[in-house]
Design a protein around this nucleic acid. Sequence first.
DNA 1: CAGCTTGTTGATAATGATTACTAAAAACAG
DNA 2: CTGTTTTTAGTAATCATTATCAACAAGCTG
Lengths: 155, 155
Amino acid sequence: MITKNSVALAADATLRARGLRLTRQRRIILEVVRATDAHPTAAFVYRRVRRRLPRVSLATVYRNLRTLAAEGFVAERADPSGARFDGNTAPHDHFTCVACGRIYDVPPRADRAVRARVATRTGFEVLNHRTEFYGRCVACRRHGRRSPVKGQRRS
Amino acid sequence: MITKNSVALAADATLRARGLRLTRQRRIILEVVRATDAHPTAAFVYRRVRRRLPRVSLATVYRNLRTLAAEGFVAERADPSGARFDGNTAPHDHFTCVACGRIYDVPPRADRAVRARVATRTGFEVLNHRTEFYGRCVACRRHGRRSPVKGQRRS
DNA sequence: CAGCTTGTTGATAATGATTACTAAAAACAG
DNA sequence: CTGTTTTTAGTAATCATTATCAACAAGCTG
């Protein structure tokens, strides 16, 4: 089972091997990102971390999200209004609801062939790929929402 | 055949139907985006448009790229360092070279089943989907480039 | 332990992309 | 023309992100 603690231990070992340290801030930032499936922005992570470390700096959050992403402990994705982070580093796809803006995880497709096809067609070396779906989630379909809700805070 | 002029005519008609106009600026911005497959940034479009309209404003470029995207004449995609635009509005996928940063078009997969699978699994209404591939393009493989080249201008 | 080196933090300034604002120009309708 | 609406250029403002830096902490080394 993946526990908070086993994650921290693994992170600690990996970071040490690079001459980096798993500081209190870094550990809590990692825990916050892994504890939600909301694909949070840096600002969201900042707000959450502040509950446990009231004196943390926004720069520290950004700095560590970058570090953790570079070391593979979180994934980073580009969003029209900025970066979002994902504590789920297992391969999976995403569904973005065009009405409420929420991003849902979607189980990945069995896709060995997809990369191979692109590789042979282009001659490129395909290291990775990801599919993004867009549409309306169940809740928004039920409520008949069609367009982005204005004024809602980005999570 | 799709000519510059037929595009302009179609754009003009669509825009008029919305009470908008195909101004000189708007038309040239559209032409610039459609004339390249470099998935340009707003700054790139601005530089190109300025060759033909030296007094154009950067704000005008942004404003019109947004308008043209909203009307479906160009596609917009989020990139880690900002928005990129695509004059190719036919369905297709993208390959991003992690070494040189270039974004290549990839022919789309026959994919009726992909959306259906997600729809039945989630209950969501899937309107669209897009696959992003990451790897090294032929040129970068040949030159043995592995990491992003620093200091190059985003196109 | 004291001293040295290096990594890290919080605070804040700086940057870069994008958007908002506004007065003037252009496009159109009658 | 004349009035109305849209659009523009120029610029200020905003927002996310990054850089800078002095103070601090952790890990050696002797």
